[in-house]
Structure formats: C-alpha cells, structure tokens
C-alpha cells in the first residue's frame, strides 16, 4: 500500500496549487508566453539576434516605470520603450563607424540606466522587484487578456510570414532577388520580439525574459531539422520549464518565478545537449 500513498502525495503536491486561482492564471500565462517566446526564439537564435533581444527585453524596465510615473498602461510603456530601442539601435548603426553590435550595446545600457534613474524618481518600490525578476502572484485577468492577444498576434504573424522569414534568415540575398523584402522582415521580427517580451515580463521579469527567447529555441535547434520542428521542440522545452518553474516558486517562495522558470528551462536544454544525436 506504500506506492499508492506516495503517488497520492505526489498528486497532491501537483494539484494543491491548482486550487489557487492566481496559480491557474500564472499557468495559462506561462503556457501562452512560453509558446510565443519559443517560436520567436527560433529566429532569434538562428539569426544570432540574442543580443538585440536582450536589449529589447531590458528596455521594458524604463518603459514600465515611465508608464507608472505618467499614469498610463505599463504594457503600452514597455512596448513603446522596446520599439524605441530597436529604432534607436537601427539609427545608430546606420552610420559608418558604429557597428550594429555596439549600437545595440549603447541602446541597451542607456535604456536600462534610464530605467534605474526613473525607479529612484518613483519612490515606491512596490512592484519593481516583480518587474525585474517576475512574480507568480502578480498575473491578473487583464494581464491574461494582454498575453493572450500578444500570443495570437505573434503566432499569426509568424505563420503568415513563415516562408519569407525562413528565406530571409537562411539566404538574405535570394530573398532580395525574389523581391521578398528581407530588411522589412527584420523589422517585423524585431516588432514581434518586442511584443513577445512584453507578454512575459509579468512572469519572468525584464532581466530574464531574454532567456525565454534563447534557451528553448537553442534546445529546439539541437532537436529539430526544420524551422517548424525547432519551434515545436522549443515550445515543449518552454512549457516544461515554465510549468516546472511555477511549481518551484510556489513551493519555494524565496525563488522568484522568473528565476525558477529559467532554471527549469535549462534542464531540458542540458538533456538535449547531452543526449541529442550529433548534427
């Protein structure tokens, strides 16, 4: 009779948090934003845009703090700040003498510094730890609506432009030759990454959101042989990590949800790294 007792205890551990509405909301949020980031992440990883995505996600900080100070929606602020960062980096890099790498570096640090300066202005630190590191309890009904809408837009965009994004990422010159506008595809991808990072800031936090773009997709690259397969395996990894991370931070409240999710995402990556057949 021991085994069933252990099973019941395990089941209890899994089911008990589900009685809490905030945990269920967080689960839905992590599933949606995990799938979004994993699918977008495939392009972030394959195009080596990890640094740009870091800049976009970090610039959410000044966006949200600024929005709180000015009194409008933090999501809007985050999106505006991320788009501003992308546009700023593109503008800085458009002149000779500044590489795109350093342009992104400049924008990343300037935006993050601006965020810290604004945080001092705000005087109340109430939600800022959650903003930086993520928090399970903070996901409300409104947040779910925003996350759901972003997920829908991003997945719709990725599917509608799949062949163009794939072509432009693989062979940019051929994309130009066909008239498939690879420069425009890059802008589209940056806008989608900005949208995607806004979707997961609640749970993962501005500092770690970039991990959700990179780790699942890096796992996908190890396991998939086509772009959709990379996205699929990446989503599996993000779901495992996301759900695992939420449980971790539920039972160990000292671990912010962002940290838990990222740590749990690293496990499937490590497994794939060790066990996936060599390419």
């Amino acid at each position: 009779m021991r085994a069933p007792a252990t099973t019941t205890a395990m089941l209890d551990l899994l089911l008990q948090p589900l009685a809490e509405p905030f945990f269920v909301r967080a689960l839905i949020a992590v599933a949606l934003s995990g799938a979004t980031c994993a699918c977008l992440g495939a392009y972030v990883v394959l195009r080596r845009m990890a640094f740009v995505s870091t800049a976009l996600t970090h610039s959410i900080l000044p966006g949200v703090v600024g929005a709180l100070l000015l009194g409008f929606s933090p999501y809007l602020g985050a999106l505006v700040a991320a788009l501003l960062t992308a546009a700023g980096a593109a503008w800085l890099a458009s002149r000779k003498g500044t590489s795109e790498d350093s342009a992104v570096g400049v924008m990343l640090s300037v935006m993050f510094a601006a965020g810290i300066a604004l945080m001092q202005q705000a005087n109340s630190w109430r939600d800022f730890a959650g903003l930086l590191f993520g928090s399970v309890v903070s996901v409300g009904g409104d947040d779910l609506l925003v996350i759901g809408a972003t997920t829908a837009i991003v997945l719709f965009g990725l599917r509608a432009l799949h062949k163009e994004l794939e072509l432009a990422s693989f062979d940019e010159e051929y994309a130009s030759l066909l008239g498939a506008r690879p420069a425009l595809m890059r802008v589209v991808l940056l806008v989608l990454v900005a949208l995607g990072s806004v979707a997961c800031v609640r749970l993962v936090g501005a500092l770690l959101t970039t991990a959700l773009f990179v780790i699942p997709a890096a796992t996908g690259v190890l396991l998939g042989r086509t772009v959709p397969q990379v996205m699929g395996w990446g989503t599996v990894c993000a779901l495992l990590g996301g759900v695992g991370g939420l449980y971790l931070s539920y039972y160990a409240p000292a671990v912010p949800s962002g940290a838990g999710i990222v740590l749990c995402c690293a496990l499937p990556y490590l497994a794939a790294r060790i066990f996936a057949p060599r390419r």
Partner: peptide, 21 residues
C-alpha cells in the same frame, strides 16, 4: 529585384550556418 526570369548565383553565397533546412 523581384524578377523570376533571372537567376543569380553568387561566387560565395552567404547562407546562414547550420540552418535547419
């Protein structure tokens, strides 16, 4: 650009490395 009747093959095509395709 955008002409299907003309094909151009570069000497060293810049293809993304280890792209899943």
């Amino acid at each position: 650009l955008g002409r299907s009747r003309i094909a151009y093959l570069a000497q060293r095509p810049h293809l993304a490395e280890s792209f899943p395709l």
